[in-house]
Amino acid sequence: MTEVLIDLVLLGMLAMTALRVIFLKDLFAVVMLFSIFSFVSALIFINLDAVDVAFTEAAVGAGISTVLMLGTIALTGRTEKKNSHSSILHLVVVCVTGAALIYGTMDMPPFGNADNPIHQHVAPRYIEDSPKEVGLPNIVTSVLASYRGFDTLGETVVVFAAMIGVLSLLGTARPTNKRATPESGLAKHRVLHVVAKIIIPFIILFALYVQFHGDYGPGGGFQAGVIAAAALILYALVFGASFAHRIVSPRQLEVFAPLGVLLYASVGLVGMIKGANFLDYNVLASTAAAGQHYGIIIIELGVGLTVFAAMLGLFYAFSNQVERSNVQ
């Protein structure tokens, strides 16, 4: 009962935020509201017990997407362009689509019903057999990394492709010739410098925890990559991008991103060499369960590496553009 109430309140907040986002003209305020939107949707996921999804939303939504959207605004300007076209046709299209979608949900089985088709097909097998076959406490990780390993490989390739796409649009960050100076960051905020220095090691430590604890609790390679990238983004924001380039340079990122994908795919190839199917981890070690363990740890590392490189690469590309447009 309480959970239903909380869900309703959260959905109401979500709808109000979304409506306000539509009508606001100041894009900076819109970005602020988007971060609230992300907070609320993560809370809804938590309330639905989808801890791993909530984790992803938490890692991406509040930090990195705010940073990237603010970077976009810094490049394009802060107010929305006046739209002179009549929007009646759009409204009709949206209303018809929405009505069709709502009509489609009429036939869906009731929410949370145990007889739903989704609970009949593969889910019972995952829940009953994965402790024996894979042996991880977090079933989500075993589904994502082992049963649907091929899907996750595809997703990692998508992240990699997205990075290539953005870099080809914005251009890669050139290593700057000028020496790194403290003036390039938030030089006047001394308190921020001190606090950032204390916080950044915790963020990196927590990223490592999420990376290697993902087999047992919520988390995994994707979330860990995002959190580690967030640590360096914080460093770059507070101290200036040229300092961050000295730790992880854009060129290194261009190596890391494909390396992660290749690491993932090579686990599959090793399985093939040993005479099993692509991405079959059972043959990687003497026993099937140990093989699953090795396989999952290595592919999570690959995912983490690619996501880290992609997120940080995006940020470098944006900050490079912002700095260049500021100089001109």
């Binding site: 006047k188 905020h189 308190v191 921020l192 606090v195 204390i198 916080i199 915790f202």
Partner: peptide
């Protein structure tokens, strides 16, 4: 305790920096 420590560090810092940048 980690959550407590992080929030005790970041929340006042964020407020301080926000007030400073509003002043600025």
């Amino acid at each position: 305790l980690l959550i407590l420590a992080i929030l005790l560090l970041t929340s006042p810092t964020a407020s301080h920096a926000l007030a400073k940048s509003a002043r600025h």
